[in-house]
Design a protein around this nucleic acid. Sequence first.
DNA 1: TAGATTGTTAATCGATTAACAATC
DNA 2: TAGATTGTTAATCGATTAACAATC
Lengths: 209, 209
Amino acid sequence: MKKQKISDAVIHRLPRYYRYLDDLYNKGVVRISSNSLGAKMDITASQIRQDLSCFGEFGQQGYGYNVAELRAEIGHILGIDSGHRIIVVGVGHLGHALLQNFDFEKVGFRIDSAFDVSPALIGTEIRGVTVHSMDELEDYVASYHPNVAVLTVPQSVAQPLADRLIGLGVRGFWNFTNVELSTKEDGVFFEDIHFVDTLLTLSYRISQP
Amino acid sequence: MKKQKISDAVIHRLPRYYRYLDDLYNKGVVRISSNSLGAKMDITASQIRQDLSCFGEFGQQGYGYNVAELRAEIGHILGIDSGHRIIVVGVGHLGHALLQNFDFEKVGFRIDSAFDVSPALIGTEIRGVTVHSMDELEDYVASYHPNVAVLTVPQSVAQPLADRLIGLGVRGFWNFTNVELSTKEDGVFFEDIHFVDTLLTLSYRISQP
DNA sequence: TAGATTGTTAATCGATTAACAATC
DNA sequence: TAGATTGTTAATCGATTAACAATC
């Protein structure tokens, strides 16, 4: 195992490894070699072994990798067992869709509260998650210390809201607002979901002659 | 201008360039140098010039780039003016949210129809987009030739549905189903949106000591 | 044991950055 | 004109792939 900075390229492949291993695991597959996993994922065996070697030695010569074990290891690297807590801020169409469809628990996030300004929503419950008033944000965060916030609010309030949450101790933002957020604070991370970018990439590809 | 294969790295930066230029354009900024754009975007001026040089010469020595012009050029490269047509297949929470919030026209996509199996939805209209029965897919595609489909259907039907649409001539898939789709057909592109992956990346970052 | 497959080192390939002549 | 800034070539850096000894 090499001790070094993990490159972004590697980090971005980890969730995909996890998805494939989780799938194999659910299918009851016991072992897999870097070669056959590479074939499935359409990447080289060499890359898989190189990537994994950043974090440890998880395989066995002549055998390959135990699926359940490797799945658990990568899950651990990704922090699935870290007991992260998450809140949804903004329960419009998109916030609502995420609450309804997204399996936060499956990736190790505990969620029990969402926040919105609309009186019509406050007090309602969506799949077991209660919608609170935005005014309760301070009290809630002080009590439960969620470390990640899903931002599904209008663009105009995104940055001030992020600043407010950072002040309260939130360290990660799953940002659907289409505004690139930033902060001077260290150790705060933004994962910006730009729907537009992916659709434009697709537009580019189908537009090529 | 170099004639060569455009790398994925470059392609994935194009939409971000477009967003920044669109923003500058809307703010009334007339010209910008690679240096100041790089400062804004937190990338090197050299990279911007290198990237743009793949597609042509859009700047002027001693002056920089005309914002309106460069914005239009990149928009053109991305196919924003290609008159693409798009349909939404699956009007659950997420499909609904996209229909309500996403500005398809702004990125050059015409949308007028969505499709679902639910009798309760068929015939309704969401922001001017009519929901049709899935049975009408063949007729609709034959008449209007949409080239992209947004897939917001259950995982289990994703691949067969994609195959069906490919057979009808659809060439791009904005795929929200969390299943990686594929085809043997040439010239068909998938843009898979894996919500899980981005949240796990965030999980990884906040889990680091 | 023999065959398979790992982890790692070395080689290659590609992407990013630096430098600079050209020129507006 | 002088200063600014481009497009492009060359240099550097990093990521991917290949090769192979180690070993289960």
